[in-house]
């Protein structure tokens, strides 16, 4: 069990906190989705769990051990797969893997074994001798992931691992990550793609402005206790209307071309439609009563994940 307790982190003493009392519980072997808009505190949280930053207030324990103790006794048990291509473009795929296996201090025979396993896992056999800088985006993502697996980590921190890849590679990566979960590894997964998180993760947390807005099992988070209305529009919602509705309707949220009311009051619908028509906006689709992760996110943060 990974326990993050009341974590506070500021990058400067006079700055507002990047993390403001974050508390999370992540079960071993779970695929944990960490969601939040840019600047929400996801990277700071991941950096703290990875040991890149030292906790200023609060604590992190893994299986009851303080993080520092856990890292010193099991130096390769936590692996970070950053969003960037954190490898060397001037080295081949095989050379990159050998390097990252080497800097983990693995014995020569174990290096060879782990590199072969990583190449096999990420289906990189055909490009093992190719320079990493010449790989396609999808293959680079696979290599990035494969490097993270060299230490056979118990906890894998994946930061936007599917950004900028083609659908085929994306499916491959999602399947691979699912396999890791089934193999008993704990995965903390951050992504802008809500559908990925819904399809992959069994537990999620949404953070914004350094605070956890909701966390728990995905099914619990998605359970909608009150009906909601979502309208997709044929054009962008005028900002004057958006500002007006934000005041008039509690639980109003919107993206560029959709609005959401939660809870939804049926009597309000005719008025809304009339105002939209007056603003030359036409509804394209309407859904009622169900919500997906994106809608939960919008309801909680009052903004889109990409804002």
């Amino acid at each position: 069990m990974i326990v993050v307790h009341d974590l506070v982190h500021r990058y400067r003493p006079d700055a507002s906190p990047a993390l403001d009392g974050v508390t999370l519980q992540i079960e071993r072997g779970s695929l944990f989705g960490l969601l939040g808009p840019n600047g929400a505190g996801k990277t700071t949280l991941i950096s703290l769990v990875a040991g890149l930053l030292a906790a200023q207030l609060g604590r992190i324990t893994i299986d009851g051990q303080p993080l520092a103790d856990f890292r010193s006794t099991q130096p390769n048990a936590i692996a970070l797969v950053p969003q960037d291509y954190a490898f060397y473009p001037m080295l081949t795929v095989a050379e990159n893997l050998a390097f990252f296996a080497g800097v983990q201090g693995l014995a020569r025979s174990l290096q060879t074994e782990r590199c072969a396993a990583a190449i096999h896992f990420a289906r990189l056999e055909g490009v093992a001798r190719q320079l990493a800088g010449e790989l396609s985006g999808g293959l680079r993502r696979r290599l990035n992931l494969a490097i993270g697996l060299l230490g056979d980590p118990a906890l894998l921190l994946l930061d936007e691992p599917t950004v900028g890849v083609d659908p085929q590679s994306r499916h491959f990566l999602l399947d691979a990550i699912r396999d890791l979960g089934e193999a008993g590894k704990t995965v903390i997964y951050t992504s802008h793609y809500m559908d990925e998180v819904e399809a992959l993760c069994d537990r999620v947390a949404i953070i914004d402005h350094g605070k956890v807005l909701v966390q728990g099992r995905l099914t619990d988070v998605l359970r909608d206790e009150a009906p909601a209305l979502t309208l997709r529009l044929d054009r962008a919602l005028p900002s004057t209307l958006a500002d007006d509705w934000a005041v008039r309707y509690p639980g109003f949220a919107h993206t560029r071309d959709s609005i959401r009311l939660h809870p939804f009051v049926a009597e309000a619908l005719p008025g809304l439609l009339a105002e939209l028509q007056a603003a030359d906006c036409q509804p394209r689709a309407l859904s009622f009563g169900t919500q997906n992760l994106e809608e939960v996110f919008m309801r909680l943060t009052r903004r889109s994940l990409r804002d």
């Binding site: 130096p75 692996a79 960037d84």
Partner: peptide, 14 residues
């Protein structure tokens, strides 16, 4: 530094 490789190495306690 730019591509996060130093971060990755730091995670690996280099």
């Amino acid at each position: 530094r730019q591509h996060g490789t130093l971060q990755r190495l730091a995670t690996q306690q280099v």
